[in-house]
Amino acid sequence: MKTRTVLDVSPLPESSFGSRTLTWWGTLAFMSLEGMGFALAIGAYIYLRVFSTHWPLNSPPPDLWPGTIVTILLVISAIPNHFMATWARAYDMRKVRAGLTLMSLLGIAPLIVRAFEFWGMRLRWDTDAYGSIVWFLLGLHTTHLLTDVGDTVVLNVLMFTRHSANPRRFSDVSDNAFYWDFVVLSWLPIYFVLYWLPRL
């Protein structure tokens, strides 16, 4: 078929940030499905609780400290995370590099405390159904924490190579910050369910 040109798109930019880009929507879609997974796992926890006569089954409630420290660390990390996203939008290479390094460290810190959280549950996954579901919830969130920290570290390294001179990389940094917010936010209901629900 013969064509006629009705529009010139050459002035358009080749990259951008946030909801204008594909990656942002992809990240959002992944968050939705993972969020749904979290919601269902929490639903399973509540379901098991409703159908048992006492809760937590035969164990004391978990030790509050490790979980609370992780929560505080995660909430604090949201602040530099926000700044890093702003610096990425400003294409500020120096600050982005510093921000990524800081975020890598702020990601590894809660991972270390997380090990004590498993310990602080005071029972094993194979003790009973309560043990299974708390380890499941904790494990599910740890997987997300681990993958995003991994992603941050790789991106951090990447930004110190020749590949960093590219506006798309800054968009990646901003999407990484977006996903970290999800990792932090999704933790809060899990923290409540794991640590406070057995105490209510």
Partner: peptide
């Protein structure tokens, strides 16, 4: 299905009636 695999593989009790599962 993950819960099922865990029940079978590492002995969790999500679906084990005798230990609080359902």
């Amino acid at each position: 299905s993950t819960m099922l695999i865990l029940d079978r593989l590492v002995n969790t009790h999500f679906f084990d009636v005798s230990l609080g599962g359902d």
